[in-house]
């Protein structure tokens, strides 16, 4: 069964990498894989608790405000704007990667700058939403909202909402920091001297992952 193999047998002799991607990029993929399971565990525990509850607040009622719109009832509009901002910043990130392939330093800097602005806009929106909900009396351990059918709601709703959107917001924040570092490195010509902009691709993978997680957070909290 077990074949005798000399201890120093080399299974792969080097040369072209088996996955045809750079080592760092492959490891970024595996890191994102593990991070996906972290977020998955968060969202699935939220789902489990929600499935075990007799009632749950109505997202159309809880998330119905828009900045400066006063008492106008605009459910989901604000959070859709946030989704749009994140998708748009994903596009500028891909364009930065594309400019990196073309060794276009100015293009990389321009698109990275737009991506950073998009990330900051998203964080600003989230800060507004959190502040607004806080003013309405919602926070960890406090839930002013009733369930859809008028029954009393537990604090599970607010606890999960603030924990999961907070964890995602922290990822957005780290992504913005990473992109700022990338912008400074590009500006100082580090990648130009290195001969390739592969580092931008790795930062890009992380940024797209943050966008990907938001797609699921959006569905789980605002649509269901």
């Amino acid at each position: 069964m077990a074949q005798a193999v000399p201890a120093n047998q080399k299974w792969w002799g080097g040369g072209r990498s088996p996955f045809n991607v750079e080592y760092g990029k492959l490891m970024m993929w595996y890191f994102l894989m593990s991070d996906a399971f972290t977020f998955g565990a968060f969202l699935i525990s939220y789902g489990t608790v929600r499935f075990s509850s007799n009632g749950w607040p109505d997202p159309n009622h809880v998330f119905s405000s828009f900045p400066f719109a006063g008492s106008m009832h605009m459910p989901l509009v604000f959070v859709s704007l946030m989704t749009f901002i994140l998708i748009a910043s994903s596009v500028t990130m891909v364009l930065a990667v594309g400019a990196g392939h073309a060794m276009d330093k100015k293009g990389v800097m321009k698109y990275l700058f737009f991506t950073i602005i998009g990330g900051l806009m998203f964080l600003g929106c989230q800060a507004w939403e959190w502040t607004h909900l806080h003013h309405e009396g919602a926070w960890w351990g406090r839930n002013p909202f009733l369930n859809f059918d008028g029954t009393p709601s537990s604090t599970n709703f607010t606890n999960f909402f603030f924990t999961i959107t907070g964890f995602h917001g922290f990822h957005v924040f780290s992504g913005v920091i990473i992109n700022i570092v990338m912008l400074i490195m590009t500006w100082r010509g580090v990648f130009e001297r290195r001969g390739h902009y592969l580092m931008i691709e790795k930062a890009g993978l992380y940024w797209h992952f943050v966008d990907l997680v938001w797609v699921f957070v959006f569905t789980c909290f605002y649509l269901f």
């Binding site: 109505d58 159309n60 009622h61 009733l146 859809f148 059918d149 008028g150 029954t151 009393p152």
Partner: peptide, 9 residues
């Protein structure tokens, strides 16, 4: 349902 709080929806 909670009293005096009409269930919205």
């Amino acid at each position: 349902p909670v009293k005096n709080a009409p269930a919205h929806g």
